[in-house]
Design a protein around this nucleic acid. Sequence first.
DNA 1: CGGACTGTTGAAATATATCAATATTTGTGG
DNA 2: CCACAAATATTGATATATTTCAACAGTCCG
Lengths: 261, 261
Amino acid sequence: LNYPLHRFEALAKLTPAEVDVLRRLGGGLVTRRRGEIFQREGEVTTGIHLLLEGWVTSSVGLASGRRLIQKVHLPGDMLAAPSMVIGRAVDTLTAVTHAVTSFVPYTRMGELLASQPRLTSLLFIAAQMERLSLIDTLAATGAATARENLARFLVDIHARLTPIGAVVNDSFDLPLTQDVIGDLLGLTPVHVNRTVRNMQREGLIARDRRRITLLNLRALRSLSPVPPRMPEFEPDWLPPRSHRAMDGQASGAEPDALERL
Amino acid sequence: LNYPLHRFEALAKLTPAEVDVLRRLGGGLVTRRRGEIFQREGEVTTGIHLLLEGWVTSSVGLASGRRLIQKVHLPGDMLAAPSMVIGRAVDTLTAVTHAVTSFVPYTRMGELLASQPRLTSLLFIAAQMERLSLIDTLAATGAATARENLARFLVDIHARLTPIGAVVNDSFDLPLTQDVIGDLLGLTPVHVNRTVRNMQREGLIARDRRRITLLNLRALRSLSPVPPRMPEFEPDWLPPRSHRAMDGQASGAEPDALERL
DNA sequence: CGGACTGTTGAAATATATCAATATTTGTGG
DNA sequence: CCACAAATATTGATATATTTCAACAGTCCG
């Protein structure tokens, strides 16, 4: 299972044992067809999903019938984590491209939480980062123009695609319809279209089919209402790579729980 | 230090030792005058704040000059946690009423993370809940009308004020100006006013000075575009109240780190 | 190849913003 | 406790970004 760990590795240098625990966290690989919905809002959930390949949207349906896409998930993301708190799916997960996921039952997450204090800390930090990213989305959606919001979106995807090597010369595949982008930015697809075409006309971006090129990244960045966010690498308050902890022996509760599978 | 723990107690029954660790987490009490700004966006941060009393807003400034208030914090909240990831303040913290806080240096948070696996799990869960709350805010701000958004806001404050006993007969103090509410909902103060007055005219709410009464909670709830969220109490995957862990002895690293102060 | 998505453009409608003036409340210092 | 200044709330008129509705053009994929 080749779960991309760049997310965690941006936070701290992992020990080989930790890498191993994370790589073996998920169950078998599951292939998702394009368009497949593999979690529906409201249903009872028993675990989270790791995204290994492809793009997946996380959307919530509003009472009005509109839907808002909270986030597009890219490889390396942990899906449906907020749902574990209430035991029911908070969001609907839809594969927008062909995708590969891996399931992690809550009980297994519990074993991880109980036995790996340092990884639990990293999970805590990762959750805070997701929170930060939502704050930025909120700032853009709530108090910025369509143009600024679109700029932020493009810059964000660019930044998140870069560590997995999917960006060449500021150019990348964007397998999202304007309809989906609209639900993501809280705009009408019609208005997304007009805004995109304006940016194109002004030479900010170029498009060819599903491929998009950011011609003036600097201009787009300064258009974006929020600054880029860089997590601090291995902050000094992070629990140390304890020799005892690194083998998963930290909590007395279930020493080898994570080694069983 | 009487840090309200209802947030954690909604998630799990705490052991006396855990209660003690949490209560002794913060340093001395700090009093904040109304209007005082005690953290500014962008400045280097060295710890988080616990809110014991009063209301505090967390806002981010946009490039356009507008500001968006991400959240109003109420007693029991942990402030500025997202900032710990990047070591700089993500948000500006402003006391909107007289308030009392207590500071927790990152190093002390690190000790907590290293020594209390179960509390770390609860912190992780709490972060996921905050994430969920942001998703709901985003849904309302991005794809709902001013009216729906305001309804959601009132219902949310009502729900969060209830566990600290600040709601009587669906009536509570709302020490926020319409200007602040506007920044919170992504609306103009003028439009907030019109929307509030409409609700009043329709008998949904009543106001007297800063006190507001939700006359028809059911109607407001159904107006809200997002459902109420109930965290699951003591989910079965949560790390158990280990006898060893409860004394803060779990990680071999620094056994008594948290007991020093 | 053909039918179903997806993108594009126009015209009209609308929720919300902006600007501006006045009323009311609130906090403060005498 | 009063009076006053500053902050906040209220209302109206007008402007505007975005939505809605609708028609048509591409393009993708089976």
